[in-house]
Design a protein around this nucleic acid. Structure first.
Length: 885
RNA sequence: GGGUGGUUAGCUCAGCGGUUAGAGCACCAGUCUUACAAACUGGGGGCCACUGGUUCAAAUCCAGUACCACCCACCA
């Protein structure tokens, strides 16, 4: 069987070839008609704004691991791929493109502009899907969806109308977060608060009719003074008792405003007096409402002061702040300015300082939806992993506020509400339907110009992708999805909203499990950003080190912390691992000639050598560990480490080296045995590794004796059913100990690596004697030595270096190579180490509390260890003395 | 103001109740041994942030402290 591998691993060629084959043969396809149990995942749809970044690579590698393993376990897997139209973000990107051409969106007009964005989407969307393929993502491409697809748009429209009719969507004038640059409303979570070093201005509001008297108000936003309609103090604040009912003059502009009192005011803050600007602050809006005050809007949607700002008309809000401060100062109305650290909200898409702005918007009433999501969490219908995210999630749901869903942009799902000439609204699937509802001709209606928050459609993703509102076989079979793999930064934006909308619309949670993955930072824990120049581009990496290596690097650092650090070193190490796999496989394939093409059964029986039994048992252990780490909290980094250690240390460093003796032997039976163990071990390990590194495992697997046409559909490895061969583990460990002991002496004594030394092994009993006799060839080849004698209680020759390997004594008569100083230091150091261990143990065992209370088994092993330590110290001391002082 | 996570070898991290703690990279010494120098062999390197507590036993559990990150929040 066994065909050779090229001497150098070329991931590019291998990856491209296999992905095409897999896809064309339909291995990624779900089969709704199969009788296999279903397993479904929907991709967190990447935004069509650009290309795949390293975070996507991690997220999708993780999904692919789960999905590939489930397939191997015999599930009918559906992994739905797709992109998000990403409303504001994408519109911004295209507007920037236009700006390069010296144009803006108004130059094109709504229709042409949207056409332009679609053009962008076609390019960018296909780039992203191509990149996912390069990563190896085994999505079912026949289910590829886009949040702005016709079908998904229909779902959006339908959900809006249903919620509207249920009274869960309403329109109203409220203070919302407004981005003057994007010129649209934002939801609360789209305004991101960051502390800044600002200033607190103490402004004097002259009391009308009492010359020289002022009420001093502390504010961070003096530019909103023209919008003031009152100054408010606490009703019980003695300092203002005498001014009750007074009128104040707005600084600079002179407009008269009342002094009012409300319990909301914090007497301890500033001067205890708060200016009330209902159109530009959420709290002031509420207070204004309580007092029936006017709402004076002093800015336009771009953040430019309007005519109500009097002399400041036409100024940008920040220029206006400067101007007002200057004017206040020259008018003697600025009492003082304090440094003040406070939170300022910025647009999450463009970082512009967000304005609290009064405007008419559409809202979703969230409380009833959140309650259902909370109940589902409580019931365990959805669970989080790591589990502590469920607290973050539920805390947010508990204090949820209504969701502002209308956006004053063009790229998105148009709000399906139509108005009559006199402003009566109706939510409808078309103008015609609205016309019927409203009893007017369709032509007389105008549709709401706004579009929906992009996250509105994302919230429907798990069921809209499956064909809702139609009742499709996919919905019935794959909804709720099995697991959602996503990062915590979109827990509120996306995960929580999917839960709420899934329950509200389909009456079931959208996913049973949420697996939260880390965000990827650089090697110093810094967020990757273009400006810092620390971005690692996944595609460039795939080009250079291959997708498998990139995946392995990401997966081997993925933990349950919020950020993981990815460094060039880590990537290099993963690249080295794939290279090691390639070379080891290459060696094995070169040595498997003569094996049949059919899968090799697990070798067993008396023909097995100790080392064979050892590697097979280590393999079983690795499988058990991997399974546990896959199931038990998905500790994928441990999965990676387990396979890495098994493959490199056990298989390559020991087993392959050990097998070389037999592979070159004349004894055909012995050779075949070694070949069978190698083939079996490698084939099983490849299946174990396949979900993490799909390409290289397939490429090698194809050349090994195997069953089936692809490793993708080969069965997931199961540990061998019979009892663990713990005897082999223990015995082989003794062999390893002896090898280590000899190598250490050689290293310390600087024995020429090519020189074959001779060794004498003193063993404690007959069993050990027989064991070492049987492993003599192995010992000799591993330690570059000839074993001249193995005997019970043989004496140490003159001029020999010595070491203790468990109960075995190793003597190397090195003659003039022996450096007495080095030898003394070595032995003394080891004795010191053992004495330390012994001392601690003795203290422990002389502690009666320990002997009485600790489990008997623990006490017993400790007692045995004491004997062993004493024995070793004794031997080493003798050896040391034998060297003379 | 509330909350979460972190603090272990020079760096990035693992270990989360039972020997005086491990890995990868980096470092030092040696080796091109015909699968692999992207490799092999050996070595050096850590009072596991601090302080208390629980326990026969603590890096590991609990409490507090310090520092670092992050999230949430309408106190101007």
């Amino acid at each position: 069987m066994a065909t050779e591998l090229s001497s150098k691993y070329d991931p590019q060629e291998v990856e491209e070839r296999w992905y095409k084959l897999w896809e064309s043969r339909g291995y990624f396809k779900a089969d709704p008609s199969s009788n296999k149990p279903p397993f479904s995942v929907v991709i967190p749809p990447p935004n069509v704004t650009g290309s795949l970044h390293i975070g996507h690579a991690l997220n999708n590698a993780l999904q692919d691991v789960l999905v590939r393993r489930q397939r191997m376990l015999g599930f009918d897997v559906l992994w739905v791929p797709g992109c998000d139209h990403a409303g504001i973000a994408t519109q911004n990107v295209v507007e920037r493109e236009l700006a390069k051409e010296g144009k803006n969106r108004d130059d094109l007009g709504r229709e042409k502009f949207i056409e332009r964005v679609w053009q962008w989407k076609e390019e960018s969307g296909s780039t992203i899907m191509r990149q996912l393929r390069r990563l190896g993502a085994s999505c079912d491409w026949s289910y590829e969806r886009f949040t702005f697809d016709e079908g998904l748009s229909k779902a959006v429209q339908e959900v809006f109308i249903r919620l509207y009719e249920k009274g869960l969507i309403y329109q109203g004038d409220y203070i919302i977060n407004w981005c003057p640059r994007c010129s649209t409303a934002l939801s609360d979570i789209e305004a991101q608060h960051k502390d800044v070093d600002g200033k607190l201005y103490y402004v004097r509001y002259p009391v009308v009719g009492q010359a020289g008297k002022f009420v001093v108000v502390a504010t961070t936003r003096p530019e909103t003074i023209p919008g003031d309609v009152a100054v408010c103090v606490h009703p019980d604040d003695e300092r203002f008792a005498a001014l009750k009912g007074a009128r104040l003059a707005m600084p600079i502009l002179g407009k008269e405003i009342p002094l009012i009192a409300d319990g909301y005011v914090d007497r301890a803050f500033g001067t205890g007096a708060l200016k009330i600007t209902p159109a530009h602050d959420a709290n002031d809006f509420e207070i204004g409402d309580r007092f029936g005050l006017e709402r004076v809007k002093i800015m336009d949607p771009k953040g430019i002061m309007n005519e109500l700002a009097g002399p400041y008309k036409g100024m940008d809000r920040f220029a206006c702040r400067k101007a007002i401060v200057r004017d206040l100062e020259s008018a003697g109305l600025l009492e003082k300015v304090e440094e003040y650290k406070h939170a300022v909200a910025r647009c999450y898409r463009c970082e512009t300082v967000v304005e609290s702005y009064l405007s008419k918007q559409w809202f979703v009433k969230m409380k009833p939806l959140a309650e259902r999501a909370l109940a589902a969490l409580e019931k365990g219908d959805t669970s989080f992993q790591p589990a502590n995210w469920s607290k973050v999630y539920s805390d947010w749901l508990k204090k949820i506020r209504d969701w502002c869903v209308s956006r004053q942009i063009w790229w998105g799902h148009r709000i399906p509400v139509y108005y009559t000439q006199d402003g009566r609204p109706a939510a409808a699937r078309s103008a015609e339907e609205a016309a019927v509802k409203l009893g007017v001709p369709a032509a007389s209606l105008t549709q709401d110009p706004d579009v929906l928050d992009t996250w509105f459609s994302s919230a429907l993703w798990p069921f809209s992708t499956m064909g809702w509102p139609e009742s499709t076989p996919e919905l019935a079979r794959y909804y709720p999805t099995s697991v959602l793999v996503t990062s915590w930064d979109i827990l509120f934006f996306w995960v929580a909203r999917m839960s709420m909308f899934g329950l509200e619309v389909v009456d079931q949670v959208p996913f049973k499990k949420v697996l939260i993955n880390s965000l990827v930072a650089d090697e110093h824990g810094q967020k990757m950003s273009k400006s810092k120049g620390n971005v690692i581009d996944p595609l460039t990496k795939i080009d250079t080190i291959g997708a498998d290596a990139l995946r392995f690097a990401l997966l081997s650092v993925e933990t349950q912390s919020r950020y993981i650090s990815l460094s060039e070193e880590r990537l290099e190490s993963a690249r080295n691992f794939t290279n090691k796999i390639w070379n080891a496989a290459r060696f094995m394939l070169l040595n498997l000639k003569g094996l049949p093409a059919t899968a090799v059964a697990r070798p067993q029986g008396p023909g097995l050598e100790l080392v064979d039994r050892w590697i097979l048992t280590r393999l079983d252990q690795a499988i058990v560990d991997v399974d546990q780490y896959m199931e038990d909290g998905v500790q994928i980094n441990h999965v990676a480490a387990t396979i890495f250690d098994f493959f490199w240390k056990d298989l390559c460093d020991w087993y392959i080296e050990a097998a070389k003796v037999r592979l070159q032997s004349e004894d055909a039976a012995a050779r075949t045995r070694a070949q069978e163990v190698l083939a079996y071990t490698l084939e099983t390990t490849l299946r174990l590794l396949h979900p993490l590194c799909p390409f290289i495992t397939e490429e090698i697997w194809q050349r090994l004796p195997h069953q089936g046409e692809t490793i993708m559909l080969a069965p997931w490895p199961a540990p061998f059913a019979s009892v663990r061969d713990t005897e082999a583990l223990a015995q082989f460990q003794q062999v390893l100990d002896v090898v280590h002991a000899v190598r250490e002496i050689r290293g310390e004594m600087k024995v020429d690596a090519k020189k074959v030394v001779s060794a004498i092994l003193a063993v404690p009993d007959k069993a050990t004697l027989e064991l070492l006799m049987s492993q003599r060839d192995l010992l000799e080849s591993f330690a570059k030595m000839t074993v001249s004698a193995i005997a019970i209680d043989i004496a140490k020759p003159e001029g020999a270096a010595s070491a203790v390997a468990g109960a075995i004594q190793v003597y190397l008569p090195l003659a003039d190579l022996l450096d007495l100083d080095v030898e003394r230091r070595r032995l003394a150091k080891e004795i010191e180490r053992l004495r330390g261990l012994l001392g601690a143990l003795e203290a422990k065992l002389s502690n009666e509390a320990f002997v009485q209370r600790a489990p008997v088994a623990v006490v017993e092993t400790e007692k045995k260890k004491i004997v062993d330590y004493r024995d070793s110290i004794e031997k080493l001391s003798q050896n040391l003395q034998g060297l003379g002082a």
